[in-house]
Amino acid sequence: MKRLVLSLVVLSCLAVAAGYGAAFLPGPSRSWAPWCLAIGTPGMLLSLMALGALRRGRLPGALGWTFAATFLWCAAAFAVSLALPAREGPGGPLLLGLPLRAAIVVYGVGLVPVLILPFVWALAFESLTLGEEDLRRVREAREAREAREAREAREAREAREALEARSAAGREAPESRGGAPD
């Protein structure tokens, strides 16, 4: 599953790169370039969220469906706005106070995810995101690391002290030899 999610991140990134790359091609601007960003950016966002939600290489079905649906929703909002003819002139249709295409983008991408993702996060938090067992393992790892670092520091200190003792003994020996009568 992790390989699949990572592949989606890379593919989405390549789509965005293709959109940018198209702008550098000679001739008139390519009409497909915005489509690359319209699909690639939500693709990167949602596949990265899925990557973050993976536990031991598995993505629980509910989360997987949520991310997939959110991706489709956002990409579709951009795509519909790109595809629909412009009708923002006098008498054009309004949706919730904005021209239709603008409303699809502003409410669809800017508002709807807020109504879904925070609740999915909260519902999944204890069972899928962070539990007591996880915290216990992290604290044990910290204690083990601290114990190892303390042991290494103690061993380094003892080694240093032993070295200093030997060099002090080395300095004293010639002095005592030199001071002794033949």
């Binding site: 966002l45 969220m49 991408v109 709807v112 993702l117 996060w121």
Partner: peptide, 10 residues
Amino acid sequence: ALTNALGAWV
């Protein structure tokens, strides 16, 4: 609307 969730999960 998406970046807060992105930051939380990632």
